[in-house]
Amino acid sequence: MITFLQLVINGLALGAAYALVALGFVFIVNATGAVNFAHGDLVMAGGYAAVGLGSLAQIPAVYFLPLVAVIMFVLGVALALLAYFPLINRPPSTVFISTLLCGIILQNAFVVLFGPQAHAAPPLLKSGVAHFGEIEISVQAIGTMVVAAILIASQYLLFTRTQIGRRLRATAEDRQMAQAVGIPAFALIAATFGLGTALAGIAGALLANQFFVYPTGGIPLSVYAYIAVVIGGWGSIAGAVIGAMIISLFQVVVSAYVSYAAATGLLYVTLLLIFVVRPQGIFGERVQRRA
């Protein structure tokens, strides 16, 4: 029972990290409709930024996390200029491919700059584990959950309660019409890529302590983010969080009772079932067109 509880806690902790990864992905989806398949690689870029900053100054990551976010914002705007704006009037699959290519370029850049080996970033506050009775949880995992909760709530409030959030959604739904009501859509899109990438970077800086960064480490993360968003409901923040939790619970809890390979298989079977039962994802697609 203790073991089971411990596994569930571990699953939730990993799920929080995945949710943080999915969050930046959803951000860009919500604001531009673009599927950014460089997202996982941007998460790694954030991890490398934390590794680099951590090697310059031996301080906990919480102090330089804002700097990571700023660096990543700039990288995100660059990504928009390179991979999104030139293709803005092309079909979505073109953007999908161009971001995928940018991801490969990033992977190569990581090898050149940091070598092919894995690196670990400094912890958010400190390393070590906290004990709650017989349950233990690493301080980093607690920090990750707290940061994830704050950013998830902020993003939800941003999109639903603020003027800029409404404008981002309007831009995603009909960019030209958004401009025709006075919204500076291109600046907003660039900022969106910047913010989404900053979120990826924060996720990477947190993940890189417990789970390391390495050049191709972002590939599965892009896939998890995509899956989380699809099972949760396209564009739904709550859905993405639930999707991330489902993935991590399969990886951590289910795999304690069957092999890792079987747990992965069961995850994908579950995904298929969700698609059959609820093709629009758990939290559904709010937006439809009238038939």
Partner: peptide, 10 residues
């Protein structure tokens, strides 16, 4: 790319 090894360790 497995991240959490706790099920294995259990």
């Amino acid at each position: 790319d497995t991240k959490d090894m706790s099920p294995l360790l259990a």
